[in-house]
Design a protein around this nucleic acid. Structure first.
Length: 514
RNA sequence: GGCCCCUUCGUCUAGCGGCCUAGGACACCGCCCUUUCAAGGCGGCGGCGCGGGUUCGAAUCCCGUAGGGGCUACCA
């Protein structure tokens, strides 16, 4: 909203700091995307930092999934795991000494203090405050302990956490990149823990410390962290005072990505999980485009753009402060536009793994998913289905009939969709099928144009059928479904042998029903 | 409860005092095209939460109010 562009040059350094717990979430991907676009737009750097300070919740699978997610999406990080950088290491679990040292300095300077309250005592205080309708935060019990009191606690064998000492009577404010002026009164921000009783660091310490130490200039993160900003700013200031940091970063809080109802998109919703998209056959181009639209717009009426175009346009000034509802229908529609724009060969390559996953391919040599014939068929079929698809997995249903065999090979055998067959291959369909068989069996030249002419002559002129009634039984007989790619081209691709065999089988079925 | 954020069609948004009888996209509904389904074309439905101000003039500025959301951990 209000960005001083004079300060935004190639010194821009932003970061994406995921916590490797669970499946990557689309909200997380959007956050990474905005940071990436912002960094690239200003010629700056994107730092990937893994915030794995909660050993109990982190998993290696999640860590790998995050890296794979970013790669699939096309988000490249300039510093971080696997690429290194001068501010590493980039996994917080490997930065223990840095945090211990920082905490010690904070403690020594009086910016932080040991707190001997037990979890039970804190819980009791919270309950009491709630009952008395007071703010339930930490009340500063140990904020001004004397040396004697500390010694007494130690003698008791009590352990302590380290708390940050919030400044008193101060208005903490900043100019949020997304929301403009925001301010909190420090009395409403309790002293918060930096170190656990076992001495291990908490997010509250590691996140600002690393932002400071890694020279982060702009923090673009979710709105859920907005209320932690007033505690982080004084910590940043303390780090500057201690000579550990050059300055306090700018903050921008991105709107939530919502799901059904008015709740944050939860892990319950299948579309919340990033893995849904590659699996279903969304394109990176499509997902990136849609995700960028969640809280951002180009400003004109254009909604279709590439990652590069996003980078070119994303200056950080057009981010909306409103929460955005995730709309899978629109995501599909955007994806479909990108899918339709693909070159034939490109689309064919992307479809291949889906056919393979379904067991529809015999496969080629040298690790190719398809043999030459299968690949040629696909190249010819792609133009027929391209504008009928929104996601890649749909190719399975639409093209499956071309990749089913007669049972003698390793592929799935051809099978009719039972619902469609029951509706269409009825008793009165057999004359149509018989006539179609005869016309095609006699056809000298097996091309779409010739098939078209032969079927029209035999069925529409010969039997006096309406096109819809003439072609639907043929379609179901040969492709197995009432909805298929264009019929004549489909028959041409399928070939005379399989077409006639399927017509004959369908004819027999229809006669049996008579 | 306290603190903070948010509020334009069902959804995502454009709009930053007059260009707005509010524009686009998705969804939805018609019609056209058509061998199915799509795609495409044309058209339709549908919105500034409410109340006060400020102003010649407010979706746009201010105040209030209502509603929604977040935070309030020795999680991140």
């Amino acid at each position: 909203m209000t960005i001083d562009t004079s300060k935004l040059d190639n010194s821009v350094r932003v970061r994406f700091p995921p916590s490797p717990t669970g499946d990557p979430h689309v909200g997380m991907v959007r956050s990474a995307l905005f940071n990436y676009a912002f960094a690239r737009h200003y010629g700056g750097k994107l730092v990937l930092r893994i915030e794995d300070t909660d050993a109990a919740r982190n998993t290696e699978e999640s860590y790998q999934a995050i890296l794979n997610t970013l790669r699939w999406t096309g988000i490249e990080w300039d510093e971080g795991p696997e690429v290194g950088g001068e501010f590493g290491p980039y996994r917080q679990s490997e930065r223990g000494e840095i945090y211990a040292d920082t905490a010690a300095k904070l403690l020594e300077a009086g910016k932080a203090y040991p707190c001997y309250c037990t979890a039970e005592e804190l819980e009791a205080a919270r309950e009491k405050a709630k009952a008395e309708k007071r703010a339930p935060g930490y009340e500063g019990t140990c904020r001004n302990l004397t040396a004697e009191q500390i010694a007494a606690y130690e003698a008791e064998g009590r352990t302590h956490v380290v708390r940050f000492r919030m400044p008193e009577n101060r208005t903490i404010s900043w100019d949020d990149l997304v929301r403009g002026a925001i301010s909190f009164e420090s009395v409403n921000v309790p002293d918060y823990p930096l170190l656990r009783a076992d001495g291990s660091p908490l997010y509250t310490l590691t996140n600002p410390t690393d932002d400071a130490l890694m020279g982060i200039t702009h923090v673009l993160r979710g709105e859920d962290l907005l209320s932690s900003t007033p505690r982080q700013i004084p910590l940043h200031e303390a780090l500057v005072e201690l000579g550990l940091s050059k300055g306090v970063p700018e903050f921008g809080h991105l709107p939530f990505v919502m799901g059904e109802g008015n709740k944050k998109l939860s892990k319950r919703d299948p579309e919340a999980s990033f893995s849904f998209y590659p699996r279903t056959g969304y394109l990176p181009e499509g997902l990136v485009n849609y995700l960028a639209l969640l809280g951002w717009s180009l400003g004109n009426d254009e909604e279709i753009f590439s990652l590069d175009e996003l980078v070119a346009a994303f200056d950080g000034t057009r981010v909306s402060a409103n929460p955005a509802r995730f709309d899978l229908k629109k995501c599909e529609a955007i994806n479909a536009v990108h899918l339709r724009a693909l070159e034939t060969e490109d689309l064919a390559k992307r479809i291949l793994p889906f056919l393979d996953r379904e067991g529809l391919l015999l496969g080629g040599t040298d690790g190719h998913l398809a043999n030459e014939e299968e690949w040629r068929t696909l190249l010819a079929a792609v133009p027929l289905v391209q504008e009928r698809m929104t996601v890649l997995s749909e190719a399975i249903g639409m093209l499956g009939f071309l990749y089913t065999g007669d049972g003698s090979d390793a592929r799935h055998a051809f099978a009719l969709n039972e619902d469609d067959a029951a509706k269409v291959l009825t008793a009165d369909a057999w004359p149509t099928l018989t006539a179609a068989f005869a016309a095609l069996d006699a056809l000298p030249e097996w091309t779409a144009a010739a098939i078209d002419e032969a079927l029209r002559t035999a069925l529409i002129e010969g039997l006096g059928l309406k096109p819809k009634n003439a072609f639907t039984p043929v379609r179901v007989a040969v492709t197995g479904r009432r909805v298929s790619p264009p019929l004549f081209e489909s028959l041409e691709l399928l070939g005379r042998e399989r077409t006639l065999a399927r017509l004959r089988a369908a004819d027999a079925r229809a006669r049996a029903a008579a």
